[in-house]
Amino acid sequence: MNNAQRGAVEFRAVRKNYGAFTAIPQLDLRIEPGQLVTLLGPSGCGKTTTLRMLAGLETPSEGAILIGGEDVTRLPPNRRDVTMVFQSYALFPHMSVIDNVAYGLESGGLKRAEARTAAGQGLELVGLSGLGDRLPSELSGGQQQRVAVARALVLEPQVLLLDEPLSNLDARLRRRVRTEIRELQQRLGFTAVYVTHDQDEALAVSDRIVVMKDGRIAQDGTPRELYESPASEFIADFIGEANVIDCEVLAVGGDQARIRVGTAELDLPARRAAPGPARLAVRPNAFAVTGEGPGLEGRVVSAAYLGDHIEYEIDGPAGRLFVMDSSGTDPLPQGAPVRLGLRPGGAALIA
Score class of each variant (00 low, 15 high):
2 N>Q: 13
7 G>N: 06
13 A>W: 00
19 G>A: 11
23 A>D: 05
25 P>C: 04
33 P>C: 09
33 P>W: 12
34 G>W: 13
41 G>E: 08
42 P>V: 13
46 G>Y: 09
46 G>F: 05
51 L>K: 03
55 A>T: 07
58 E>M: 04
63 G>R: 05
74 R>P: 00
80 R>L: 12
81 D>M: 04
85 V>W: 06
87 Q>I: 04
91 L>C: 11
92 F>C: 01
94 H>D: 03
109 G>D: 03
121 Q>P: 01
125 L>V: 08
128 L>N: 00
130 G>A: 04
138 E>M: 13
146 R>G: 00
159 V>S: 07
162 L>M: 15
168 N>C: 07
182 R>F: 07
188 L>I: 15
192 A>D: 04
195 V>M: 06
198 D>H: 13
222 T>I: 11
232 S>K: 04
235 I>D: 01
236 A>E: 11
237 D>F: 00
239 I>F: 13
250 L>A: 06
253 G>C: 07
258 R>H: 08
265 E>H: 05
271 R>N: 13
275 P>E: 07
277 P>E: 03
278 A>M: 06
288 A>N: 04
288 A>Q: 14
294 P>R: 10
313 E>P: 00
317 P>V: 03
318 A>E: 14
319 G>F: 05
320 R>N: 05
324 M>A: 15
331 P>A: 01
341 G>E: 12
342 L>F: 08
343 R>M: 09
345 G>P: 03
